[in-house]
C-alpha cells in the first residue's frame, strides 16, 4: 500500500525506550513500584499511586482479560483501509490496563472478560506492536 509512509510512528523517548526495545525482542515490559508493590503502565518517573521513584522494569506475563472493546468501522488516515478492526482495553494479570488491537478474533467470540494473550505483530510494514489474541 502506498499509504504506508503516512503512518505516524510512536516516538520512543528516554523513558519509554526500554518498553519499545522489549517489544522488538518479543517481551512486554511494564514497571513495578518497589514501595507500594503495584505495577505501573505506561512508564513513569514517579509511581502514580504512592509517588515513590522506586520503579523498576519487569517482564509482564502477557496474559489478561478484555476490560472493554469496540469494533472500529470508520478510522482516520492510513488506518481507514484497515477497518473494521477491534480495539480493546486489556487488563493484564499484573493489574494494569493498556490499549491494544485484537487480532484473529472473530467478532462473535469477543466479549468483555474474555481471556487474551499478547502477540507481537507487524501490520502494514510498521514496527511490531503488542496486539492481543483470544486465549480460549
Amino acid at each position: 500500500m502506498s499509504e504506508e509512509a503516512n503512518y505516524a510512528l510512536p516516538q520512543s523517548d528516554p523513558e519509554s525506550a526500554p518498553y519499545w526495545e522489549g517489544i522488538q525482542q518479543g517481551e512486554l515490559r511494564i514497571q513495578r513500584c518497589a514501595a507500594c508493590q503495584r505495577h505501573v503502565f505506561y512508564p513513569r518517573t514517579l509511581c502514580p499511586y504512592c509517588h515513590s521513584d522506586q520503579l523498576a522494569w519487569v517482564s509482564a506475563s502477557g496474559r489478561g482479560t478484555i476490560y472493554s472493546y469496540t469494533v472500529v468501522h470508520r478510522a482516520f488516515g492510513p488506518f481507514a483501509a484497515e477497518a473494521p478492526f477491534i480495539i480493546a482495553i486489556v487488563e493484564l494479570e499484573e493489574g494494569v490496563r493498556l490499549m491494544t488491537r485484537l487480532i484473529d478474533a472473530p467478532r462473535e467470540r469477543v466479549r468483555i472478560g474474555a481471556a487474551v494473550q499478547v502477540s507481537f505483530e507487524q501490520v502494514s510494514g510498521r514496527p511490531p506492536l503488542p496486539f492481543f489474541r483470544l486465549a480460549e
Partner: peptide, 17 residues
C-alpha cells in the same frame, strides 16, 4: 501525520479514532 509523542505513543499506533 504527526508522530505519537509522550503518553500518546502507547495508544496512537493502534488506530483508535
Amino acid at each position: 501525520s504527526p508522530t505519537y509523542r509522550l503518553t500518546e505513543q502507547f495508544e496512537g499506533p493502534f488506530g483508535l479514532p
